[in-house]
Amino acid sequence: MSNRIIINTVINGEPTEFLADERDSLLEALRERIGLTGVKEGCNNGNCGACAVIMDGRLVNSCLVLAAETEGANITTVEGLAKGGELTPLQQTFLEDAALQCGICTPGFLVAATALLEQNPHPSEHEIRYWLAGNLCRCTGYDKIIRAVQHAAERSA
């Protein structure tokens, strides 16, 4: 039996206390213990970005973080982007520009691109591609995703 521990965090603005195994990844804790299933598991080894979340202001892959490491941390998942049912400009342009097909990569792209726009509101195409290089998509061919991020940046002029 792995040890159970209580972890106190702030998730999507809400103080959240949860019970986890010491071996749990943050990805497992978010999905299985807290029920935030917007966070996706693609590869479980850091290569695909489907599990990306923002932790204390920086983008991380939640499959490469232990839940135990998040004591006191502030975490944003895809569920925390829209406020009061209102989509963010980025979520809106993802829909308008058809930047998703099957959608499994979408939460990771949304979270990663949100982190980009927070610190660089008007990135170049090169900067967007470079920043999102750790997010894989098997369906869209990327161009539509890049365009959606560009359009969202234009909107927040």
Binding site: L59, V60, N61, L64, A112, W131, G134
Partner: peptide, 9 residues
């Protein structure tokens, strides 16, 4: 080294 999310850690 890695992408943005790897570089965060």
């Amino acid at each position: 080294i890695g992408g943005t999310a790897v570089q965060g850690r």
